[in-house]
């Protein structure tokens, strides 16, 4: 693959990291568009908008939120272990993160199937459209994150990351924490408020 060379540029930051940060800036605007539309449409339908607890299983999704926050923590611990040169720690951290992320997706799929069974679909009402679009795009981001983590995990098994260069782990970490953060916002405005 590429020859070993420094990616640190004039800004004093690795290009790959800078690129991920910029990508996340665009992701913020993407979710801003969706959330903005959600707010507008919800205010236009205040009367018929169901109370979140009436339709959604908040304890279940609350548990799911807890899993996702834990997955951020396991990733941070894994990265810290990797940067200390403790490779097994990195691998365990990545593995647990993948496990928790997959669990999140499984629970979300279960939640979807229950809701669809109860008659709430993307086309059944404006509420359903907003709910599935917002949470669905977040779920897609988690899926991408899990796949990316699996790639990083395989590379860590091959010994690609050293204490000096664990940028690959840092980059997926940035993305993963961002997805986590988006979920906390979505959980608040879709499930709690």
């Amino acid at each position: 693959m590429e020859q070993v060379e420094s990616h640190i540029g004039q800004m004093g930051v690795d290009s790959r990291k800078l690129g991920v940060w910029l990508f996340l800036a665009s992701e913020i605007m993407f979710f801003t568009g969706l959330i903005g539309a959600y707010i507008v449409l919800r205010f236009a339908h205040l009367q018929e908008w169901p109370h979140p607890g009436a339709v959604l299983n908040i304890p279940l999704t609350g548990f799911n939120t807890f899993l996702l926050i834990c997955s951020s923590a396991t990733l941070v611990l894994g990265l810290a272990a990797g940067q200390r040169g403790y490779r097994e720690g990195l691998q365990v951290g990545l593995f647990l993160t993948i496990l928790l992320g997959s669990l999140f997706l499984l629970i979300q799929m279960k939640e979807y199937s229950i809701l669809i069974h109860e008659g709430l679909t993307i086309s059944s009402s404006m509420y359903g459209s907003c709910f599935f679009t917002l949470t669905g795009f977040h779920g897609a981001h988690v899926l991408v994150g899990v796949i990316w983590l699996i790639v990083v995990f395989i590379r860590s098994m091959q010994g690609k990351y050293t204490p000096e260069d664990s940028m690959g782990v840092e980059c997926v970490g940035l993305y993963w924490h961002f997805v986590d953060l988006v979920w906390i916002i979505l959980f608040t405005i879709v499930y709690l408020i």
Binding site: M29, F30, F31, G33, A37, I122
Partner: peptide, 25 residues
Amino acid sequence: TLLATPVLTSAMIMLLFDRTMGTHF
């Protein structure tokens, strides 16, 4: 481009859902 294009993407996706998934955004 970085800050404006994703908003168009989100709008286009909602329009696509209106056309194909039966939503009414």
